[in-house]
Nucleic acid binder design. Structure first.
Length: 586
RNA sequence: CGGGGAGUGGCGCAGCGGCAGCGUACCUGGUUUGGGACCAGGGGGUCGGGGGUUCAAAUCCCCCCUCCCCGACCA
C-alpha cells in the first residue's frame, strides 16, 4: 500500500479525551477513530491488525476441529427471557423494538448458539461439537473507558462446545484451552492463564487470560515460587494459621460511641489499649443466602471480605428488620443461638484476643476468644488476597499483578441447558439428555489496544510481526525529488510485493524527519529506508523497530533480507515462561 | 447512578461583554530532503443546543445534550 493512497493521517497530538497510551497512539497513528463514547471505527491500518488477530484465532480454533459459524447480532428478546438474562444482564442489554417485535443486540451468544445448533446436534452421534464465531457485540457498559480497552460495541471471538457428558466437556475444554495458549503465544505479549471466579454461572473450572498492564482493571495473585495464579476474585491464601498463644482475659464490653467503622472504633479503643490494631479486630459482615437465611462472615478488621459463593451482602435497609443487628456494631457473640450461621476466615483462630462489635449500639467487646466467647460453624477463605499473602500451595509470598482480561474460558456444564428447553439431544438410550457446554471468549477488538499498551515506546507503537498491519515499512527519502532514488524505491516496492511481503510504502513528498518519525509511530516491525545517499552507495538501511538495530543492506539483497528477517521474527515467541500454560487440572 | 472537569476550524489550544484568533493539519506557488524545514498566498468555525439578560453575548444567567476523570457496576 502506498501511503499517498492510504486512508489515514498521523496526528501530531492525540485528542485530549484519549487517556490510555494505547488509545492515544492508535488514534495518532491513524488506526482508529472514535465516533462516540465506547464506539470506534477502524481505519485500514487498524482493520488489518484486527484481521491478523482474527486469523490467528481462526487457525488455532480450526486446528481443534471447531467450526466457524455466524450468529445474529439482533436476537429476539424471548430467547433472553428463557434464561432470565433480561433481568440478570439488564444493565448492559440494549433493547430494540421494530415492527417484528422486541429484540436485543447480543452482548454474548449462549442463547443464540443453542437455538442455532439444537436441530443439528440432535443426537449423541452428533457430539461432541464446537462452533465459534467472530462477531460484533454490544453491551451498554456503565463506563466505557481507555479507548479500545472497554467499549460498548466490540468484537469478540466466542466458541461454544457441546458434549454429552462432563468428562467429554472437560476434554473439549482442554482442547480449547490449548488453542488459547497458542493464540496468546502468537500474539507476542506476556500473559497468564489464571484461575478465575465462576461468577453467577457456577461451573467447575474456568480461566481468565490476563495480560499484565499498568492500565489494567483487574488483578490476579501470582506466586513466583510454585506458579499459583488466580484472579483476585478467586484467589485464596494459605490456610495455615496456628492458634494464638495469648492468655486471653475474660471478655469485656467497652463504650466506644458512634464508631461504626473499624478505623473509628480502633481510634477510640487504642487510647486505652494501644496494642489493639485493626488486625486484631473482627469485622463481621452480615450475609444472606438465596433462601434469605442469615449468615455472618468474620474476617480480620484490616482485610477486605470476599463474599463466599451462594451468599449476598446484606443491604443497609435490611438491618431495620433485625433489632439485634446494629449496623457497625455487629459481632459473632450469640449468633449461634439465633440460628445464624457463622463462617470465619481461617485466620480467625482461637487463643487470641479479638475485639469486635458488641451487638449493641455504640459498644464493642474486648478479649473475645473464638470458641470460648463465640461459636464458629464453618471456616472459609473469606479475605481478598493482597500483596505479600502466603501462597495456598507453597506458602511463599504472593504478589498482585495488575492486568487486562483478554480472554476467558468457562466450563458451563448444564447451566444453560437446564434453562433452555431446546438444549437437548437424544442419548444412546433414546432419552432426552442435556448438553454439557463450554464457552470461550477472546476480546478481539480489545487486543490491538492490549498489545499497544504493553508494546510501545516514546516514539510510538511496536507491533509484533504476527499482528502488525504490514511486515515491512518501506520509506523512500526524497521521493519525487530524486528520480534515481525514487526508481530504486519503486522497484523495491514491486519486488517485495511480488515476493509476498506485506509492505507499506511511504511515497509521500515530505521531509525525511516526518517520514521516519511516522514510521516509528506506526510501529511496523521492519523499516527499510532508501534515499539518494544510500542509493549512491548501493545500500538501503534496514531497521528493526523493536530493538532499533540498523544495518546497511546492499540493494540487491534487500528483498531476501526482509524475507529472512520476517521468518526470524515469526520464529520467536517474544515472551514465554517455562511451564506456563499447558498444565492445569480440568 | 453519585462526585469532579471540559465542550471555540480535522487535531491541540488562547480569547471570557465590543470585527473569532494561534499552532498544527489542509489547498496553491517557490525553496528544502537521512530524524516532525522555510517563504508567500489561500480555504475552512451555527464558539455543543435551546432560552434569557444586554444597545451589543464565545464571554453573564437558566435549562438541556455530549465527552473525559474518580467511584459504584462488570455473564
Amino acid at each position: 500500500m502506498r501511503m499517498t493512497r492510504l486512508v489515514a493521517k498521523t496526528l501530531r497530538e492525540a485528542p485530549s479525551d484519549a487517556e490510555a497510551i494505547s488509545h492515544q497512539l492508535l488514534v495518532r497513528a491513524g488506526f482508529i477513530r472514535r465516533i462516540s463514547s465506547g464506539i470506534y471505527s477502524y481505519l485500514p491500518l487498524g482493520l488489518r491488525v484486527l484481521r491478523k488477530i482474527e486469523g490467528i484465532v481462526r487457525q488455532e480454533f480450526d486446528a481443534t476441529g471447531a467450526q466457524e459459524v455466524l450468529l445474529p447480532t439482533v436476537q429476539p428478546i424471548e430467547l433472553w427471557e428463557e434464561t432470565n438474562r433480561t433481568v440478570t444482564m439488564n444493565d448492559v442489554l440494549m433493547r430494540v423494538e421494530i415492527r417484528g417485535g422486541k429484540f436485543v443486540l447480543g452482548p454474548t451468544h449462549e442463547e443464540a448458539v443453542i437455538a442455532t445448533v439444537t436441530q443439528d446436534l440432535a443426537s449423541y452421534r452428533d457430539l461432541p461439537a464446537t462452533v465459534y464465531q467472530i462477531q460484533t457485540k454490544f453491551r451498554d457498559e456503565a463506563r466505557p473507558r481507555f479507548g479500545l480497552l472497554r467499549t460498548r460495541e466490540f468484537i469478540m471471538a466466542d466458541a461454544y462446545s457441546f458434549d454429552p457428558s462432563q468428562e467429554a466437556m472437560r476434554a473439549s475444554y482442554k482442547a480449547l484451552y490449548g488453542a488459547y495458549v497458542k493464540v496468546f503465544d502468537r500474539l507476542g505479549v506476556e500473559y497468564y492463564p489464571v484461575e478465575a471466579d465462576a461468577g453467577s454461572i457456577g461451573g467447575d473450572v474456568n480461566h481468565e487470560f490476563m495480560v499484565p498492564a499498568a492500565i489494567g482493571e483487574d488483578y490476579f495473585a501470582l506466586c513466583r515460587d510454585c506458579g499459583y495464579k488466580a484472579n483476585i476474585e478467586a484467589a485464596r491464601r494459605s490456610r495455615d494459621f496456628a492458634p494464638g498463644t495469648d492468655v486471653v482475659a475474660p471478655m469485656s464490653e467497652i463504650y466506644t460511641g458512634e464508631t461504626p467503622t473499624v478505623d473509628s472504633a480502633i481510634a477510640i479503643i487504642s487510647k486505652t489499649r494501644p496494642e489493639i490494631t485493626a488486625a486484631a479486630m473482627i469485622k463481621s459482615i452480615v450475609l444472606k443466602d438465596e433462601k434469605g437465611a442469615l449468615a455472618l462472615a468474620l474476617v480480620p478488621g484490616d482485610r477486605k471480605v470476599r463474599i463466599p459463593p451462594g451468599y449476598k451482602p446484606f443491604e443497609r435497609e435490611d438491618f431495620a428488620d433485625y433489632d439485634f443487628l446494629n449496623l457497625g456494631f455487629v459481632g459473632p457473640m450469640g449468633m449461634a443461638e439465633r440460628g445464624i450461621r457463622v463462617i470465619a476466615d481461617y485466620s480467625i483462630v482461637a487463643g487470641k484476643a479479638w475485639t469486635s462489635g458488641a451487638n449493641k449500639k455504640d459498644f464493642h467487646v474486648l478479649d473475645a476468644e473464638a470458641m470460648r466467647d463465640f461459636e464458629i460453624d464453618e471456616f472459609g477463605d473469606l479475605v481478598v488476597v493482597q500483596d505479600g499473602d502466603a501462597c495456598p500451595n507453597c506458602s511463599a509470598s504472593m504478589e498482585l499483578v495488575r492486568s487486562v482480561e483478554a480472554g476467558h474460558t468457562f466450563q458451563l456444564g448444564l447451566y444453560y441447558s437446564e434453562k433452555i428447553a431446546s438444549a437437548r439431544f437424544s442419548g444412546e438410550d433414546g432419552a432426552d439428555s442435556m448438553y454439557y457446554m463450554g464457552c470461550y471468549g477472546i476480546g478481539i477488538s480489545r487486543l490491538p489496544a492490549v498489545v499497544a499498551e504493553v508494546s510501545h515506546d516514546n516514539a510510538g507503537l511496536i507491533w509484533p510481526i504476527t499482528v502488525s498491519p504490514y511486515q515491512v515499512h518501506l520509506v523512500a527519502i526524497a521521493y519525487g525529488r530524486d528520480a534515481a532514488a525514487a526508481a530504486v524505491a519503486d522497484e523495491l516496492y514491486a519486488s517485495l510485493q511480488s515476493h509476498g511481503v506485506e509492505v507499506l510504502f511511504d511515497d509521500r513528498d515530505l521531509g525525511p524527519g516526518v517520514k521516519l518519525n511516522d514510521a516509528d509511530l506506526l510501529g511496523i516491525p521492519i523499516q527499510v529506508v532508501v534515499g539518494p545517499k544510500g542509493v549512491t552507495a548501493g545500500v538501503a538501511d534496514l531497521k528493526l523497530r523493536a530493538s532499533g538495530a540498523k544495518s546497511d543492506v546492499p540493494l540487491g539483497e534487500v528483498v531476501e533480507r526482509c524475507k529472512t528477517t520476517i521468518a526470524e521474527l515469526l520464529e520467536v515467541v517474544p515472551w514465554k515462561v517455562g511451564g506456563r500454560g499447558a498444565e492445569f487440572e480440568a
